[in-house]
Design a protein around this nucleic acid. Structure first.
Length: 272
DNA sequence: ACGGATGTTCGCGC
DNA sequence: CGCGCGAACATCCG
């Protein structure tokens, strides 16, 4: 599931599902989703509580319940919060469940177990090191091109790898970095410090455009590429290596940067 | 059957 | 310290 737009949709959806509903039961198997002893906290502390607020920072969800109970959720690669009624059969790979008063069950599904759930005092959620160490969030704070430019000047890493560093900007993943660099016509291998201010401006706009585009494409969380097998790929170049470039028609190529597949157009995205 | 997949973290080597 | 690389995690899909 997870990159900023998908997590944003998850936050909005969870807000709707949980708002005004008391949690009657909380269940979870013992998996590594819960580091340490947080499974016990999950199954005991949430009973009788209601959601007070939910926020997203980067790829993290922060949920505050009554009684100062706070829940931090990261969706990893395949995590997703889903809702069903008690009469519906549970999906596979559900790792945690919130039984709402009435008929709803909000479940955390995560086949690959890369996600995390931990519990903390709600008023300390933003001080957690996972959150405090994040860079600015493009949707919450916007992107300050000059600030990003100065950050880029300090690194020799490929710009694409730097953009995916959660301490630089919170929430940019492989899809958004790949598509935004294509939109900005910047080669993903360019060293951060080689970028001119004008180019960083283009990247900042492209990131915001790409995020907005993805938010729209996802609607309200109904359709999602990869999640729903058979769904058409809504992205510009991500996952399209070998296909014609949408701008010039030249076949898109792929390279590996920071261990991740990176698709680009060798004509439109020049090296220097 | 094999390879790769929206993420993070850790160890190793330069 | 910065950075690249590979591995690990566990499951699904083409």
């Amino acid at each position: 599931m997870p990159e900023l737009p998908e997590v944003e949709i998850a936050a909005r959806t969870l807000r709707n599902w949980l708002d005004g509903h008391t949690i009657e039961g909380a269940e979870a198997e013992d998996t590594r989703i819960f580091r340490g002893s947080d499974r016990e906290a999950f199954t005991s502390e949430l009973i009788g509580k209601r959601l007070e607020w939910i926020e997203r920072r980067g790829k993290y969800l922060l949920l505050a319940f009554t009684g100062n109970v706070g829940l931090l959720s990261h969706l990893g690669m395949t995590g997703k919060w889903v809702m069903r009624s008690r009469s519906e059969p549970p999906p596979r790979h559900v790792r945690a469940r919130l039984l709402l008063a009435g008929d709803g069950i909000v479940s955390y599904r995560d086949p690959r177990l890369f996600g995390r759930i931990s519990l903390h005092p709600a008023d300390e959620l933003f001080q957690l090191k996972e959150i405090a160490s994040l860079g600015r969030d493009p949707l919450v704070d916007g992107i300050d091109p000059l600030r990003l430019y100065e950050r880029m000047q300090r690194t020799t890493r490929p710009v694409k790898v730097a953009l995916m560093d959660q301490a630089v900007l919170a929430g940019i993943g492989n899809i958004q970095a790949t598509d935004a660099l294509f939109r900005a016509r910047i080669h993903p291998s360019r060293q951060g410090k080689s970028l001119r201010l004008e180019e960083v401006r283009d990247i900042a706009s492209a990131l915001l455009d790409s995020i907005a585009f993805t938010l729209e494409a996802e609607g309200e969380g109904e359709i999602a590429y990869i999640e729903e097998p058979g769904t058409p790929n809504p992205f510009l170049v991500y996952g399209r290596d070998g296909s014609p470039c949408p701008n010039c028609g030249h076949p898109l190529e792929k390279i590996t940067l920071g261990g991740r597949t990176t698709v680009f157009c060798p004509v439109c995205q020049k090296e220097a």
